[in-house]
Design a protein around this nucleic acid. Structure first.
Lengths: 219, 219
DNA sequence: GTCGACGCGATTGTTAGCAATCATGTCGAC
DNA sequence: GTCGACATGATTGCTAACAATCGCGTCGAC
């Protein structure tokens, strides 16, 4: 009946990660240990280990004797990361197509339906949620632990850029048919087509990023 | 003229990584902090940070209150890791084909020649070195920082399994034509073919691993 | 003889404080 | 006025001791 089932270090890490992902700390902003202690309500020791953990996740950078700051991901890096995500999610999609069960196929179909309705109703926030649900379901079907871990950390590094991207007008109209193609391929148990569909999909995201780059990028 | 240009923590991390990769610590073996202090000649603080760094690289696992041990990579995991390497190196090969310069093409050609001679002379150790040189050159040509980092850490987790694999009889005879196909595709500036060739190559490595699995795996 | 409670040594988690380093602002020489 | 040496406060790197936890052996009840 211990009041704490998780260690202070873990809670501090999760809290800090959330704060960075929410944008409460901006890219490049310094993370002074003493301030984090107050903010997170932990000792300096735990704050430090939290920082080191987030270095491993690619969210924070530490320079010796100069402290930690939120990692700044340039657009070029964001494109590289997206390229890597493309091949990883392609691998996962192919494997999902090899392993999908009947009830998982039904779940995919349902998400597809909901997505189409969300786009028709112009409920973009809802569509964005369904997007995450779809990718997450595909990963669950594939059950590829190694790829999952990497995709998760890469996603973390991209939150900022992806958020901007989702605001691009006309994006759902472009991505809906891509999502439907992915769903169809996995349901048809066609690994090659599933991989191709997923890669095309994420590749179009990378292309959109390159477009933003040309338009001026972010502050 | 400072005697130390690198911190003790960094040196400790590199030393420990080397020791693990050389097999001086076996998978599953406990890494007691006090012992590491002696072995690495650093304080407990630095030994701890070295351990945490290697956790991030996937070489070490830490259980709360139970200490650190060398991570044990099962054959199933090794296959997963190799699958991920397959798509990552495929991506890198494709990009190398897009960016290769004339002199890099010549360097590729030279490695190809040396490989063929090494196989003919049955100098397998030399062939293995050339193998690493080839993959490393392809990465350098591609210049994909993000993929490089991931590939490096994945390779680290596999050293043990790959070593066993390289001892498999007849392996060079199988992989030589695959390597030559990769080289030809990159020299021909054909990204799709380069990716396909690289994936076939690494996929055959994964297949060999699965074969070992059936045969009983490792101790 | 077997099982579980208990205690002890070993090991890790944590703390507080000191030392080293860096960024900044001030002063003086030119 | 500008540049550089220098002092100073802020911040991180590190040490050593202390507290918490665990693995394991011992002992006793049944």
């Amino acid at each position: 009946m211990s009041p704490e089932r998780t260690s202070a270090a873990v809670r501090a890490r999760d809290k800090l990660r959330e704060a960075i992902l929410r944008g409460e700390y901006l890219p490049g902003e310094r993370l002074v240990e003493a301030q984090l202690c107050e903010r997170l309500g932990v000792s300096r020791f735990n704050a430090r280990t939290a920082l080191q953990d987030l270095v491993a996740e690619g969210l924070v950078e530490i320079q010796r004797n100069k402290g930690a700051h939120v990692r700044k991901v340039s657009i070029d890096e964001a494109i590289e990361i997206t390229e890597v995500r493309m091949v990883l999610e392609g691998l996962v999609a192919a494997r999902a197509a090899e392993r999908v069960t009947a009830e998982q196929a039904a779940e995919l179909e349902e998400i597809g339906q909901l997505m189409r309705r969300a786009v028709e109703a112009e409920e973009f926030r809802r569509y964005s949620d369904l997007n995450q649900r779809l990718h997450s379901l595909v990963r669950r079907i594939a059950g590829h632990t190694t790829a999952d871990r990497l995709i998760a950390t890469l996603r973390g590094q991209l939150v900022r850029h992806q958020y901007m991207l989702s605001l691009l007008p006309g994006r759902p109209a472009v991505s809906l048919p891509q999502h439907e193609r992915i769903i169809a391929a996995i349901r048809a148990a066609d690994p090659k087509e599933a991989e191709a569909a997923m890669r095309d999909h994420i590749n179009s995201v990378a292309a959109a990023m390159r477009g933003m780059d040309v338009l001026g990028g972010l502050p």
